[in-house]
Amino acid sequence: MSTQLKRVHGYLAEFKSAKALYEAAEQVRDAGYKRWDVHSPFPIHGMDQAMGLNKSILSLFVLIGGATGTTTAFILQYVTQVMIYPTIVQNKPANIFSLPAFFPVMFELTILFAAFSSIIGCFVLNQLPRFNHPLFTSEQFKRFSDDAFFVCIEARDPMFSREETKSFLEGLGGSNIELVEDEV
């Protein structure tokens, strides 16, 4: 259902190359903006530093996931092989000393759980899937996945102002500056 009310999402400005985007990002960072992002068809090397971002914490998720996998596999095998249903094969023990035979499955489940936590963690940290983002209302934004490079400074940034942010982006060399609005 559409209403007449619009909410400003922010300013979108196009830059002509990865190099220009990188240099613009450094200046947006130095100007003190916090709620902003750059959009590019591919990850740009060094852009995290240019935007003043830290290392992703995803690896912590993956470490926890991997450790969960190892533990799960150990419990699964110990409980079934030693406690519930000990099978004596080739005169091998059915106690904690059969641990070496459990290593392959422990390894596999470590990888499996770590892989799932890696991909799920990636999407959770990115707050994806999200299909209704205001940027999708912009026609020119569709080219981000082809060959266009954008900076978007959001209206919820405390430093955002309709006039100053626009002239700031113009000063950085941005073109096709657009005020992205979303229907409320």
């Binding site: 852009m47 995803l58 892989a115 990636c122 994806l128």
Partner: peptide
């Protein structure tokens, strides 16, 4: 997944890709 090519996303994406590569190698 509603991908927007944002660098704040690429940051985690690249880390996920790196970790999956590191996990797949011994796998």
């Amino acid at each position: 997944m509603g991908w927007r090519g944002a660098n704040r996303h690429w940051r985690h994406y690249e880390m996920a890709y790196l970790l999956l590569a590191a996990l797949s190698t011994p796998l």
